[in-house]
């Protein structure tokens, strides 16, 4: 079942980008995301997407970034066609589609290069309450686990003759009952077990919880952050103010 983790989740890798402070990665990813929202010509998107793909190459996640884009290709095509149909011109429809691709790929930079743990550290550095952080981390941690549960349940019920795709729309909705009930029950059981394990590890009972991990900017982080911000400013000046 490893394929699930492979396709959807962060994978450990080493690259210049991976080793950056997660806050820097977040800033890079987020600024590109914002620029994607405000860009409006094909030329701007060519620059933005080249920058994003360059980051993809540097962090060795280009292949998976493209995979993510291919997954969303149906949406892109839909957006493109709908725009054409409602009467927008070709250029505008292309721009809208490119914007969608840029949004997806810019945000994927952070998620493909940072483990959920790093997001945990970012949240700690923002002094969010630990309960909230822990809830977030475990939620992300157990998404693939619960997905596997769902696959097992579907397999079990299909082996008992359940045909999910059979019947009219109402019958089809009813077909999901034998899958949803065990999934809910299993998730409740799992959360009970989690609660036991958490309590056995003294979670939530100490007033003075310490933090072993702290984030520190290194020289590399400062350099790359400065370089990135300079490029962003340059882009904004050239494109928005000088209308190149």
């Amino acid at each position: 079942m490893f394929w699930l983790a492979e396709g959807l989740v962060y994978r450990r890798q080493e690259s210049i980008i991976h080793s950056l402070d997660p806050r820097v990665k977040l800033i890079i990813s987020f600024s590109l995301f914002i620029l994607s929202l405000f860009s409006s010509t094909i030329f701007e998107f060519i620059i933005l997407l080249s920058a994003i793909f360059l980051l993809g190459v540097l962090s060795k996640v280009l292949r998976r970034m493209i995979k993510t884009i291919t997954f969303s290709l149906t949406f892109v095509i839909m957006i493109f066609v709908i725009n054409l149909l409602v009467g927008y011109d070709l250029i505008f429809s292309i721009v809208i589609s490119l914007r969608f691709i840029a949004i997806i790929s810019s945000s994927s930079i952070f998620f493909l290069t940072s483990s959920p743990d790093e997001l945990d550290l970012v949240m700690r550095s923002l002094h969010l309450p630990y309960d909230l952080i822990f809830a977030f981390v475990t939620a992300v941690r157990f998404v693939p686990v619960i997905l596997l549960d769902a696959i097992q349940i579907i397999d079990s019920q299909r082996s008992r003759g359940l045909e999910i795709e059979k019947g009219n729309i109402f019958k089809r909705i009813r077909n999901y009952i034998p899958i949803l009930i065990p999934l809910i029950v299993q998730s409740i059981i799992r959360s009970e077990e989690l609660a036991e394990a958490m309590e056995s590890r003294a979670y939530g009972f100490s007033k003075k919880r310490t933090s072993y991990y702290t984030l520190h900017f290194k020289m590399k982080d400062y350099l790359i952050l400065c370089l990135h911000l300079m490029l962003v400013v340059l882009f904004i000046l050239l494109v928005y103010f000088l209308h190149l």
Binding site: P116, L194, M198, K208, T210
Partner: peptide
């Protein structure tokens, strides 16, 4: 120390190190 039947439900963090540290941070 309590080790449950299904270790999956006992590992909360995304790396072995961080999971071990989790309990140690909890006891301060």
């Amino acid at each position: 120390g309590f080790v449950f039947q299904n270790p999956e439900n006992q590992i909360f963090m995304f790396s072995v190190e961080k999971d071990i540290v989790f309990g140690l941070e909890n006891i301060g």
